[in-house]
Design a protein around this nucleic acid. Structure first.
Lengths: 164, 164
DNA sequence: ATAGGTGCAAAGCATTTGCCGCGGT
DNA sequence: ACCGCGGCAAATGCTTTGCACCTAT
């Protein structure tokens, strides 16, 4: 049977081609937040007959269908993760690029209150913490510059980590 | 005498050329979060002998000097605002692209606690709310696609608004 | 059969940079 | 005079697209 993401595709009536099935599988098995190039690398390893253009197209399609969510952690490349995963946010280790997920219901409440005070209802929101591990000397990493706020270093493509 | 930003430049020993003075002035007078093209437009109106490359270089330099802060509200272009402005965040109206600033000390406390719980200290953070005005029909606006999360529409370059 | 998907290479955008003449200090 | 700056155009890096062929349904 197909991967979790593949099923979501079928449910939405998407035509399931070979490459889509592979990409869907890669996404289903990803526990991190890969960027397009990384997805392409993993998919190619499984099939080889996939072009990066297709990955871009697929990833965009799935995002429009609400199956994927696009993230921007700075570094000028979009990264993706499957939807679901109840609301959570990201803490990016500025020294290693590692991404840690977390959630906090109280926090959500505060946000809703803030928005209400300004006369708005929240459609969505994004919260990213850029932090440094406590009491740990930092070995800085190279940087290329581009995009985003804290001008933090590039996130390493797959050093993500879950901390639900 | 020079604009507020120009003084900050002098304090940091930057060579003050004609174009820098103009850009500094434009920035000092901006109450919104203009992107580079918009800055270029405003600066050109004042002087004409300024190239967009210079705006890019200047804006980057000022950011490195801590005089400016780069923002990414989605839409694939960086936007800038002068530093200072005690810590604040942004609420982007998804229907109009308008940006409203706000701050909330309690919120900051919650964040610090979250980070500590994960064993991190916060280097910086970003919080953006994408919301819709309460009880107001929405007239959606055109979109070009690219970058960032909520895939909200492009922020109009200057419909920002303050709400300290 | 046929609407839609895919590969490839070219196009697009925002942003950066090499080169070289010019202008602050 | 000297070193940094600005203009211009070419180069980048990520992402999208036009076109011709291919394939699920």
């Amino acid at each position: 049977m197909g991967s979790r993401i593949e099923q979501a595709c079928v449910e939405r009536g998407l035509k399931m081609t070979g490459q889509r099935r592979v990409i869907a599988r890669v996404l289903s098995e990803a526990a991190d937040h890969p960027d397009v190039e990384e997805l392409y690398r993993r998919a190619s390893a499984l099939d080889g007959r996939i072009s990066i253009a297709t990955v871009y197209r697929t990833v965009r399609l799935l995002e429009e269908k609400g199956i994927l969510e696009r993230r921007d952690f700075g570094g000028g490349r979009a990264r993706y993760e499957p939807t679901e995963h109840g609301h959570h946010h990201h803490l990016i280790d500025v020294d290693t690029g590692r991404v840690i997920e977390f959630e906090d219901p109280e926090h959500e409440r505060v946000l809703k209150a803030i928005a209400a005070r300004l006369g708005f209802s929240i459609v969505s929101h994004r919260l990213q913490l850029f932090g440094r591990k406590l009491e740990a000397a930092a070995a800085p990493r190279p940087s290329r510059r581009r995009s985003s706020e804290p001008r933090a270093d590039q996130p390493a493509a797959d050093t993500d980590e879950l901390a639900r």
